[in-house]
Design a protein around this nucleic acid. Structure first.
Length: 944
DNA sequence: GTTATCACG
DNA sequence: GACGTACGTGATAACA
């Protein structure tokens, strides 16, 4: 059929279809082999619906147009074009060729061309069709195609089934279709990274174009514009705007290989199409389409899925071929209790044979520093597990002590002696869940366990952000099995007993099950590491940190008990005075520590304005509320704030810390959790030594109680502005990067740029505001949040942010693409490849805002966490190499604390500083220097 | 056990 | 245009 008057050409934007299909459907996979096919299915359904939906006015010619690749001639014009765009999701990539195949199976030409985008081909064909006198319908909702709308050309939004004509284009861009290019050139596009004119959006652009007629006139007469800012932008950025025009203008003269004549509409060949659908194993769709074609639906066999691909990827040599086949069912009766050396030896032989052994210690305390071993659970293979009781007592009727050793157990020393050979054998992999705990306990018995794998850390590397990584949770998630809760054995709360008092048979079932579950988890998770590209993360950022942290925790930090006690007394006295004052002001006695009672006093009895009830119906009495009241001149809330500050210091620090001093070492041993945060940061518990006060003078006194032992000093080294530096690098903000390279005061420089004031003699308030914006930006800034932080009107905060984005182009694009990546992939990554999953990003409503800000923050916070992890892993060796005897004690996110002999302090600082500043290399080259500040003193307060 | 509050980066 | 927010943690006391 020749093209001419009366012809109607349909040009389908294939790429738009693909992404819509991908997002519209859940991630379906082909049953027989797990090939992702969700987008293929969606694409076929959409194409079928379109082809069936034509009435009498259907097309005479039809083609689906695709992007050839992500690169086009526009990349030669402008390096940054679409540079911020994340790669397509991993499960979508293999579907691209299948979708072209699907198109052809429908009897529809699939058109693409190297060096050009689908939009350019569509533009070219549309022009050819119009010139031949034909009608054109472009099936797409992409705004970039709207410039083509005009006489003979309309668009059709396939999802909403809406026709887009000149009126709809005007509604979108504020101008007629033939001026859309002008508007786009000015407004730019953050998604495609078209720069445009900074500070000018679609609204302003349309207004300007309406006023001046077209872009060239506007640029020529730019000096007539009244608004000074706008005028300057248009004059200064004229070249950038012209470049943007080249980028957004679709090419209408692509030298296409096939003419429209070659694309007549044809009925699909039933055999070919149904064959393809059968190959994809689309049962419902095959039936529906066969019905429409009047053909027999194809037979799709219900093929059984073969063995999970995971087993193929299982480490060769780690176990016999097929060892992972089907795991035996969990069966408590299959577990054994080992009471004799010979039985233990037999089990250990199995481990020698297989090359790995799962181990799990049962002890009398969660505190590794005091825990005694009650028994040892071992599992060489799924379904095979044993418990070796070594320290159980008979606790019956004799809870006050004088417990007798339970009969028929191996001696702890004998069991450890037999185990030691395996535990230190380089050829046998030890497997455990949260092995840092077991490693520490065994270290106290003189055993250095290696090598090892930790299922908790594997889960963390794979699934951070998707849930917890404790054993019970992992068992439910991956094995569909709920292990016996420890509570059922030892009880909870005050009446809880220690594990050594649990009857051996019950203990054995519980403990052996844990070992069995752990080794099953290992078999599940280990092959996923490589398949999901987190092996490096696990092997370089997670696992090697375990012994480093174990050493730090075992070292502990010296705390001056008497000093804390004196501070506590001082706080108590001041609090008593404040309490009297507060009661007098209130007119009656009440519990100042009760937010409920305080709320009633303030907002009911005293009748103060500005009270807000929370969801629970209680008056809010947070610091922000009290501060507002205090600023209005009310004394009572001001005193309560003072009281609360002291109460916090006393209860959480000066009173609680002494209880954590280990009686044997006289030091405080925190525990660092490796898998507690979603971002890769550590967390410190029992006690938390990452939140010791520093911001107020009274709080800092508590740091004077963290001291160095005789003859030593405390050394503190911290990264300066690490998150902002990483942000400048990741978002590619040249002005920020340069400021860091030049060693400028980054907040002052920001203030100077955003508010246009000189750095010399800057008002500290102005700098403070810029600092808040800089912090805000790494938290996923919002006008509301900034307004709250700075206590300024939201409109003002918004103006700050707008000015900031305008001054630092690239920030908004970075934020948008990060969000897009999170939506496409379901996770974001750090520079070192750590994945942080963002399941909340798909939610609707306010929840999504949360998830988006978290997604923006995660790569930044996570990369900083990776950097310091790398440093920590290298430091012990660096110290040894330089014959330094100092010890690393604490990590506080961007700070490391050491205790070193006084005469080694300066050299240690130099060595550690070098390691920290170079920690990103060689894996990643950060285009901004990392700077570390060092300090030393008798206490943490002096060193910091 | 949950909630409100507040300590840190 | 409205929604309702700054990111990540842990410990304590009050309260149900």
């Amino acid at each position: 059929m020749t093209l001419g008057k009366g012809s109607h050409v349909y040009l389908i934007d294939g790429s738009g279809y693909i992404f819509r299909a991908y997002h519209a459907l859940p991630p379906l996979t082909r049953k027989s082999d797990g090939l992702p096919v969700g987008a293929v299915a969606g694409f076929c359904a959409m194409l079928h619906k379109m082809l069936m939906g034509f009435g009498n006015s259907g097309p005479t010619h039809l083609a689906v147009v695709f992007d050839h690749s992500s690169k086009s001639f526009r990349n030669d014009l402008y390096e940054g074009y679409k540079a911020q765009r994340p790669p397509p999701p991993e499960d979508l990539r293999p579907q691209f060729p299948l979708i072209r195949e699907a198109t052809r199976a429908f009897g529809v030409p699939a058109v693409e061309m190297k060096g050009f985008e689908a939009d350019d081909l569509i533009a070219t064909y549309a022009r050819q069709a119009v010139e031949a006198g034909a009608e054109v319908t472009i099936v797409s909702s992409d705004k970039d195609l709207m410039q083509l709308v005009g006489p003979g050309v309309t668009m059709l939004d396939p999802m909403k089934n809406l026709t887009i004509g000149p009126d709809e284009v005007r509604a979108k861009f504020g101008v007629a279709p033939d001026r859309v290019i002008d508007v786009q050139s000015l407004a730019g596009d953050s998604v495609d990274n078209v720069p445009g004119a900074p500070g000018i959006g679609v609204k302003t652009a349309a207004q300007l174009i309406e006023e001046y007629g077209d872009l060239d006139t506007l640029l020529a007469r730019a000096e007539e514009i009244k608004q000074p800012k706008r005028r300057e932008t248009l004059i200064e950025k004229a070249d950038q705007i012209r470049l943007s025009r080249d980028l957004v203008t679709l090419k209408q003269d692509v030298p296409v290989e096939h003419g429209l004549d070659e694309f007549p509409v044809e009925k699909p060949e039933a055999e070919k199409l149904l064959g393809f659908l059968a190959e994809m194993e689309f049962r419902t769709l095959s039936n529906r389409i066969a019905d429409a074609l009047g053909a027999e639906p194809p037979v799709i066999e219900a093929k059984r899925a073969p063995e999970a691909p995971a087993s193929k990827a299982a480490p060769a040599g780690a176990e016999g071929p097929g060892a992972v086949r089907a795991m035996p069912k969990l069966d408590p009766d299959a577990y054994t209790i080992i009471r004799k050396a010979a039985d233990l030896a037999a089990l250990l032989d199995e481990a020698r044979e297989s090359g790995h052994l799962c181990i799990d210690l049962e002890t009398t305390s969660l505190d590794e520093m005091v825990a005694e071993i009650a028994g040892i659970a071992l599992s060489p293979a799924p379904g095979r597990a044993a418990y070796v009781p070594v320290g159980h007592v008979t606790g019956e009727g004799d809870l006050l002590g004088a417990a007798e050793r339970a009969p028929d157990q191996m001696a702890l020393d004998d069991a450890l002696a037999a185990l030691r050979e395996i535990l230190v054998d380089e050829a046998i992999l030890k497997i455990g869940q949260n092995l840092k705990y077991d490693l520490k306990v065994l270290r106290r018995h003189g055993i250095d366990v290696r090598p090892f794998d930790d299922t908790m850390l594997m889960s963390y590397a794979l699934d951070s952000g998707l849930g917890g990584h404790g054993m019970d949770e992992l068992s439910e998630r991956h094995l569909g099995h709920r292990p016996v809760p420890i509570k059922e054995l030892i009880g909870s709360g005050k009446s809880a007993i220690t594990f050594d008092r649990v009857p051996i048979d019950k203990a054995a079932t519980y403990a052996a099950e844990d070992a069995d579950v752990t080794i099953r988890l290992w078999h599940k998770l280990r092959p996923r590491l490589a398949a999901e590209r987190v092996s490096t993360v696990y092997h370089t950022l997670e696992r090697p940190l375990v012994p480093v942290l174990a050493d730090m925790e075992l070292a502990g930090i010296l705390v001056d008990r008497d000093l804390l006690s004196r501070l506590s007394n001082g706080f108590a006295q001041k609090m008593a005075g404040l309490e009297d004052e507060i009661q007098k002001l209130a007119g009656r006695r009440f519990n100042v520590g009760s937010p409920k009672q305080l709320g009633e006093i303030l907002f009911e009895e005293m009748g103060l304005e500005g009270g807000v009830k929370g969801k629970a119906g209680a008056w809010g009495t947070g610091a922000d509320v009290l501060e507002t009241l205090a600023a209005q001149g009310h004394d009572l809330p001001a005193r309560v704030l003072d009281w609360r500050a002291l109460s916090k210091l006393k209860s959480t620090y000066t009173d609680a810390l002494p209880n954590h001093i280990n009686p044997e070492t006289g030091r405080v041993h925190t525990s660092f959790s490796l898998a507690a945060t979603s971002t890769g940061r550590l967390a410190s518990t029992d006690p938390n030594l990452q939140n010791i006060p520093v911001r107020t003078e009274e709080g800092r006194q508590i740091r004077t109680a963290f001291v160095a032992a005789e003859g030593n000093v405390i050394l503190s080294l911290d990264y300066s502005q690490i998150e902002l530096r990483i942000f400048a690098h990741m978002a590619g903000i040249d002005a920020l990067k340069k400021a860091f390279r030049d060693g400028l005061d980054i907040h002052a420089m920001t203030a100077s740029e955003v508010f246009g004031v000189p750095i010399e003699g800057m008002d500290p308030m102005v700098r403070r505001q810029a600092k808040a914006i800089n912090f805000g930006v790494i938290y996923g800034i919002s006008a509301f949040g900034l307004a709250n932080n700075l206590r300024i009107p939201q409109a003002e905060a918004k103006a700050f942010i707008d000015a900031y984005f305008e001054r630092f182009p690239g920030i908004r694009a970075y934020m948008d693409t990060t969000k897009q990546t999170a939506r496409d992939q379901g996770y974001v990554t750090t520079l070192f490849g750590r994945k942080i999953h963002t399941p909340g990003i798909k939610l609707k409503g306010p929840h999504r805002g949360f998830a988006e800000r978290a997604a923006i923050n995660a790569p930044i916070q996570g990369t900083a966490a990776d950097v310091i992890r790398r440093a920590m892993i290298r430091i012990p060796e660096a110290l040894t190499d330089h014959k330094l005897s100092g010890r690393m004690l604490l990590q506080v996110h961007d700070e490391l604390l050491f205790e070193v002999p006084g005469d080694e302090a300066d050299k240690t600082a130099k060595v550690v500083k070098a390691v920290m500043e170079g920690a990103a290399a060689p894996a990643v080259e950060i285009s901004v220097p990392l700077v570390v500040d060092a300090g030393k003193g008798q206490s943490w307060a002096e060193a910091h």
